[in-house]
């Protein structure tokens, strides 16, 4: 496992960590990794200027001491495990394809979403945040799982075409807007959902047991869910499943 720890006193500006993913770093020595270019604000700097590199190369990559300035963590990930001991900024897990991204703090807007202008979001893997995420988490999701341990911002799962988004806290306004076929699994009623969702009543869905097992959640958590089918403005084959008492 290679660990990249954010140094104290890094100059101001946002940091882009696009491309710093397990498969790209596997087999690279610490010296090579230290020379990789990162974008800080509007300039390029060697990675070592911002992060202290420790450990040996492997399937797992870890970030430590990160904060909300660290953007694009795990963006385009295509395998391996990426663990973040800290917060993540914008675009974490964007257009991810495979592997596990686990952020132990919070993440900003566009978590597990798509590149700007494209309609192709996450294509696989598991993107997990232990605390909160910003707006538009899981936007354009196509496959894979987005797991939010805390609250999600507005438009969670907007325009998702497949896959599953789980929010264990509360989702914000307009959850599932333009949802095509994906599943939003929510522990509580969201702040709001589009009026184009229809209440299909309370159900026991076996699939949710498998999902809970796979994610290491309590199996009883989603034993009974209220199913809202929608978004009917785009076909209505998606669903928002809200845990029912």
């Amino acid at each position: 496992m290679t660990t990249l720890a954010l140094r104290a006193g890094v100059p101001p500006g946002r940091i882009s960590l696009a491309g710093i993913v397990p498969t790209a770093l596997a087999g690279k020595t610490a010296a090579t990794i230290e020379r990789l270019p990162l974008v800080l604000g509007n300039r390029s700097v060697p990675l070592a200027e911002l992060f202290a590199v420790t450990g040996a190369p492997g399937d797992t990559l870890a970030f430590a001491d990160t904060n909300a300035r660290c953007d694009s963590i795990g963006e385009g990930m295509d395998g391996g495990t990426l663990v973040v001991e800290g917060d993540a900024g914008l675009y974490a897990g964007r257009a991810m394809k495979k592997g596990l991204l686990h952020i132990k703090g919070s993440a900003g807007d566009f978590f597990g979403s798509a590149h700007p202008g494209t309609r192709r979001g996450m294509a696989g893997g598991v993107a997990r945040v232990d605390r909160n995420v910003g707006d538009r988490a899981g936007e354009f999701l196509r496959r894979g799982i987005v797991l939010v341990g805390g609250d999600a911002g507005g438009y969670c799962g907007a325009r998702a075409t497949a896959g599953t988004i789980v929010v264990l806290g509360r989702a914000g306004a307009m959850a599932g807007w333009s949802l095509k076929r994906a599943s939003l699994v929510l522990a509580r009623m969201p702040q709001s959902m589009p009026p184009t969702f229809g209440d299909a009543g309370v159900h026991e869905l076996l699939y949710l047991r498998l999902l809970a097992r796979s994610l290491g959640l309590d199996a009883g958590r989603f034993a009974r869910v209220r199913r809202f089918a929608g978004d009917s403005q785009v076909g209505g084959k998606g669903e928002i499943l809200v845990a029912a008492p």
Binding site: G144, I145, T164, R181, L210, K237
Partner: peptide
């Protein structure tokens, strides 16, 4: 047409 595919841990399931 109302069936839903889900992928978990590499396996595909139909609902």
């Amino acid at each position: 047409g109302f069936q839903i595919a889900k992928r978990l841990d590499g396996a595909r399931y139909w609902r």
